[in-house]
Amino acid sequence: MTTSETKNPSDSVENKFLSVNIADIMSKDVITVTEDDSVEDVIELFEKHHFHTYPVLSADGELVGVIDQNIILEVLMFDRISRTKHTHMAAIRSLGEDAKSIMISHPVTITSDIGLCDAADLMLKHHINRACVIDDGKLVGIVSKRDVINEVYRTRGLG
């Protein structure tokens, strides 16, 4: 690939990265569950959709947790997994009847004004595949590694 432009193309890409916030790339149409939804309903969601993680909201609409594929697999396969994984917490979770009782109650969250580079840095450094985006305690979206990769790809392509 050749270019006759006088400006440095990498500078241009760098500037574009800096101007992109999470709000620009996150998925805004998020399928959520409420804390009282039954475990069966949650499992059905995993069957119906291809998402890895579902945010759990309280009655007031606040994010209180997440349920991901690992949790569901652990709940479904609890009586088959190795006894070393039969911890007290896992046993309680396997008996859970609603979303609240099986969710991870400490999800990693970021705000929508965080830049693309900071989000990518967080994901790479700490092996986080996706994070809930909250503004003022309310869930406004989810951003995944795929969203970041797609944006970088788009930006480089345009640059």
């Binding site: 690992n70 109650s105 400490h106 999800p107 990693v108 969250t109 700490h126 092996h127 986080i128």
Partner: peptide, 12 residues
């Protein structure tokens, strides 16, 4: 630490 999200990242 059990309820601090960043301290409870699965990787950590």
């Amino acid at each position: 630490l059990s309820d601090i999200p960043l301290a409870k990242i699965r990787d950590v």
